[in-house]
Computed example of a mutant assay.
Amino acid sequence: MTSGPAIYGNFTIDDLVYPNGSTRWGVPGGSAVYAAMGALLWTKVSSIVAPLGADYPITLLDKRIDLSRCRSIPKTMRNWGLYEEDGRRHFISRNESRDWTYFSPALADAASGYQAAAHIAPLPFEATKQLIEELRAGGTKSISLDMDDHDLLGNRSLKKMMELVSTVDLFMPSQQDVLALFPGKGPLEAMHQLRSLVPEVALIAIKCGAGGTIAHLAGSEEYLRIPAVHVEVIDQTGAGDAFCGGVLGSLARQGDLLEALLCGAVSASFCIEGMGFSSLLEATGEAANSRLERLRQRVERAPCK
């Protein structure tokens, strides 16, 4: 099986607590899975590069996800996922899963194969830095990055964070992430500050949940606002990861950044329509293209100031 776009991240099994007090226990997921599912709407196959626990139910995954580069480990990372009314979420690892690096891809995993395009989902800072260096050395042409707000809230300087961001092609943080970088700033003001700090990054896209996505292409005199696709929201888990996967999957296929952003929004819309990744599994190419066509008419542009 050809590897397609490669997703570097984690497999997890999560116990979720929602704002209304409802809960779900033992939910298979993980950033790598949602991103790979999001990519599959726009590409024939995607691959995951991550340690794979023996207890993870891989039979639930789409067969087009290539797991051949997943290193086997005894158990899957286990988290509590806590959701708030304003859309913020907090994932807390259980005691036996506190060593995040153990559950994350290593340099040897990155060296196990070649990919033209790779997405790095939230991972420990040092692991992310080393993976980017290894991927560049191995000839990966397009690298997209999502970061973890635990790192963004840590004791690393903004300068160090931006030095890392400057080494990738696409930076796709959430609104919660940019608030950690720039407390009190709205998405547009945060975008302006990000762009001033990393002017060469080809795409910066801030994911704002129901508010859609604020994006800027390097050198453009306009900001883009990609609205969220209107669907009934059942479960927001993994939507940001599905967006990132959709962007990378589309970009790997046709190379247009605006089109890739639209595809990312469509992938996220399928994700939130069901529990876990069930709706992404059920999504069809025909339905995805229909949503994509409608979304193209709703892109908003505003001049940079």
Rank of each mutant, 00 (worst) to 15 (best):
F171D: 08
G245T: 07
G219Y: 11
G219V: 12
P19S: 10
G246F: 03
V299I: 15
S3N: 07
R296N: 08
A117G: 04
Q130D: 14
E163C: 04
G9F: 05
S157P: 06
T2M: 05
W42L: 09
P173H: 09
T128L: 04
L158G: 07
S269W: 10
T167R: 10
L248V: 15
G240T: 04
G211E: 12
P28A: 10
S290L: 13
P19M: 03
T76F: 04
S68Q: 05
Y56A: 08
T76H: 02
S220G: 02
L181P: 07
S157W: 06
P124W: 05
L67Q: 02
N79Q: 07
P303A: 14
L197K: 07
G26E: 14
I214H: 01
L248K: 05
A121W: 01
L248M: 14
A218Q: 12
G29P: 08
Q175C: 01
G211W: 01
R296C: 12
I226W: 01
S104C: 11
D149E: 08
H150K: 05
D99G: 01
E134V: 13
G184F: 00
S3I: 12
L280I: 14
L281N: 15
R156E: 12
K141C: 09
Y102G: 00
S22M: 05
A36T: 08
G219K: 07
A32R: 03
L262T: 03
K159G: 09
Y34S: 07
G154T: 13
N10T: 13
C304D: 00
N155Y: 07
V198H: 06
A116E: 15
I206C: 03
G138P: 04
R24Y: 08
N10E: 05
G255L: 03
S47E: 14
G113E: 12
T101V: 15
G9L: 11
G219P: 02
K44G: 15
D55P: 01
T43E: 10
F270T: 09
I272E: 04
L164G: 05
S166Q: 13
A32S: 15
L40H: 06
A36F: 05
S267R: 08
R64I: 10
L170H: 09
